[in-house]
Design a protein around this nucleic acid. Structure first.
Lengths: 330, 330
DNA sequence: CTGTTAGCGCCTTCAA
DNA sequence: TTGAAGGCGCTAACAG
């Protein structure tokens, strides 16, 4: 079912059909009607691929992710809602599913789709490389410096500080931290926030209480075990992300500890699982919906020809749930 | 950055570059090395659009949705997880965001992407039309007959029956129902399940207790109001979906009723909001993750050349939460 | 108003 | 082993 079939069936040339499809001027009303008739009979739709190869505009916004995990999905939700009612369709592409090459998927996806298929891109990346591209790009959560394209992220430092202050306000003095991936800026910022909160409260920093969890479930479990089997274990743990926090809760349970009575745990992100765990997880929420919406807004202005370079920083907010409680009396 | 630039920089022809990129035989090792060198220097990636126009395989699975709402996003999650480790990438396309034409997006999206951009499609549709296509297609939740392509849906009848039985087991005898969209088969099946459960329990069917909610929030609110202002209002309501159920709870609250003490409410779907409402919503869960996984499995076998026509029906499971309780004593 | 022509970037015969 | 040529479906000049 190509434009050729339509042209043939209607007894006109392909260019005439193209004009009708794209509502160009210069087609006789009668011809137009006949062609439209044939089109609807045959159920013809113009091929996105072919037309995008030829013309530069597609009216499609691409969102590029490594894979569709909860964070990206929430973002997608906000993006989709914001895009509704505009002229743009949304195409989400996970370019890292195939086995092999983990690195550089941002560049690969952008090169493969950019320029032709999509008019602009929102790229969700936890890595450092943000390629420059022929189309406007917004990066969300680009754990990197402020170089490169317009970027959006959450206030990692402030959020971590808030989380730690929450624990302090509950009377905790011995507070552990499970760090995130050390090559990501967000991990450092979150650790800094933790240390700042301690310092502000006059609690001295104890390196023994900080272990590496790499934002991953299994490594976080090891870190939690190390922390909890210390001669003087912490009464509370701030984990750099929810995944680590949930893992820490599991570990505490397996060691016979009760959360939150024996140990308080707080995470970062507020992924959907956080609200459904037992006990439900106290955490610091990234406003993913709003981040998605902001990304769209910025991208649309870039597409409208405006210059956008200023990175946007979104606020993080404390979500106290069941996994944090007042410190046990010694 | 096209294949031409690479060819020029490497001092070879485009066809040679193409052969190198696609690992075809017939290129001298030295040439190959030089070309690869240039490719990595220039950061060249083959254009998805151009190559898909020329060759039929892209190793991309498309998932076509009207928009990215919670149901589709959960599905996406399951699909993405199942696709990991296979050779396929995932492209999700929302082809109905642009204002205007609501109907027929399935056909439009499939025509525009199928045949060239994607090797196969999973289409998430609540409407009746399921177009035939040039690529293998699996339909999820196609509230339609068994005609057309391979389809996956949930046991609507059994799930509705289970929900109603749950209310009956709590002592309710006067049970209202807020129906779904009458043009969708799922709505009829859910109503049938409700009536079957009543009949099995020896409770006579009262047409006054069944109102139309169209699966929509606002219409469900009207239906709920009508039900609750009846001379003899129901003590429990089974809503055809969670959206309607949440709306019914709102309505009940605004009428001064306490849920679940004065009125029990149960929904259908188990969307994420159900676990976070106050009170949390009892419901019947569609196994969206598993439905997505099943869709992928079926699609992969179709792509491998096997015939798949048998529709898959997934089980629905009761998720009792706070919004249902024993019937108030008269 | 309509049709012919020339590519968009790529892959695939087919000659050289 | 290499390159030239044709064409995938479509759009955009340009002639007629």
């Amino acid at each position: 079912m190509t434009i050729n079939d339509v042209a043939q069936a209607a007894g006109v040339s392909v260019s005439t059909v193209s004009k009708v499809v794209n509502a160009r001027y210069g087609v006789a009303p009668s011809t137009m009607e006949r062609v439209l008739q044939v089109i609807s009979e045959l159920g013809y739709e113009t091929s996105l691929v072919a037309s995008s190869l030829r013309s530069s505009r597609t009216n499609i916004i691409g969102i590029l992710v490594a894979e569709f995990e909860p964070f990206a999905l929430e973002l997608l939700n906000g993006i989709s809602a914001t895009l509704r009612g505009t002229q743009y369709d949304l195409m989400a592409y996970a370019g890292n599913l195939a086995p092999g090459g983990r690195a550089g998927w941002e560049h690969r996806s952008l090169s493969r789709l950019g320029g032709t298929l999509i008019d602009g891109a929102i790229i969700v990346t936890p890595t450092v490389e943000i390629p420059h591209s022929s189309v406007p790009v917004i990066a969300i959560d680009p754990h990197a410096g402020t170089s490169g394209p317009a970027a959006i992220d959450v206030d990692n430092f402030g959020g971590a500080k808030t989380a730690t202050e929450h624990l302090i306000s509950l009377g905790h003095r011995r507070i552990g931290h499970i760090k995130g991936r050390s090559d990501l800026k967000s991990a450092h910022l979150r650790e800094s926030g933790y240390r700042q909160a301690l310092q502000d409260a006059g609690i001295s920093y104890d390196p023994q209480l900080v272990h590496d969890g790499d934002y991953q479930r299994d490594l976080a479990a090891i870190a939690a075990t190390d922390l909890l089997t210390l001669p003087q274990p912490p009464t509370a743990i701030f984990a750099a992300n929810d995944l680590s926090a949930l893992s820490a809760i599991e570990t505490a349970k397996s060691l016979g500890l009760n959360v939150p009575n024996d140990l308080s745990v707080i995470g970062f992100d507020d992924i959907p699982e956080a609200a459904q765990s037992k006990p439900t997880l106290s955490t610091v929420r990234q406003p993913m919906h709003e981040m998605g919406a902001t990304a769209v807004t910025l991208l649309l202005s870039m597409l409208a020809g405006e210059e956008v370079t200023q990175p946007a920083q979104m606020p993080a907010s404390l979500i106290p749930r069941e996994s944090t409680a007042t410190a046990p009396q010694p």
